[in-house]
Amino acid sequence: MTAKISYADVEVGTELPAQTFPVTRATLVQYAGASGDFNPIHWNEKFAKEVGLPDVIAHGMFTMAEAIRVVTDWAGDPGAVVEYGVRFTKPVVVPNDEQGATIEVSGKVAAKLDDNTVRVDLTVTSAGQKVLGMSRAVVRLA
């Protein structure tokens, strides 16, 4: 594992480059196929509304996959991720139009740990609402 960021070069509070990730209905269909999660709340508006959701929502695991990209792009090696956990607090609602929704992700180093690892705390929002809570990754730096 070969992270491009050196442990010595980061401090508690170091900010990772923020990113935004678009998600449309087509994205969700593609993710459903790739992940094998065909729950209709992720592609069928009628079904989603019948179970009390405002509209079709993104797979929580899709949002989790996007959020960690802020860490893997920063570290350079996705294999440098040692731990990653999230709480699914609010759904990412995806309207049926070309824009869809946007997932906004920022992160900062929250702690320097043993063995050249750091804990990164992520902030993940969509439409101004926090969609993941307790979103934390431990990553091994060079």
Binding site: M64, G79, V82, E83, Y84, G85, V86, R87, F88
Partner: peptide, 13 residues
């Protein structure tokens, strides 16, 4: 059922 939390701990990718 809804998905509440998810966590992974990796020995290697």
């Amino acid at each position: 059922v809804v998905h509440g939390d998810q966590k992974f701990a990796y020995v290697r990718p």
